[in-house]
């Protein structure tokens, strides 16, 4: 699951994750990730890396309960 807050500055970023995932090109959408991040108001590079480098593992782990 995506972290609730940015590790470095503490801004709440979790709420933007689903929109980012749906819109950004390296996830499911076709927009430029940089523009989507600007749009969401994440302008510090500490918050931006949280999304760019995140990989959801819930689907990978869920069969092994």
């Amino acid at each position: 699951m995506v972290p609730v807050r940015c590790f470095t500055c503490g801004t709440v970023i979790g709420e933007h994750w689903e929109e980012f995932k749906a819109r950004a090109a390296n996830k499911e959408g076709d927009e430029d990730p940089a523009e989507v991040l600007d749009d969401l108001g994440l302008d510090r590079h500490c918050c931006r890396r949280m999304f760019v480098s995140h990989q959801d593992l819930v689907d990978v782990v869920s069969p092994y309960q």
């Binding site: 699951m1 995506v2 709440v12 979790g14 709420e15 994750w17 689903e18 819930v58 869920s62």
Partner: peptide, 12 residues
């Protein structure tokens, strides 16, 4: 909660 859309956990 100040923000309503923070995913806590995805439930299968």
């Amino acid at each position: 909660p100040a923000d309503e859309n923070i995913p806590l956990i995805e439930l299968k």
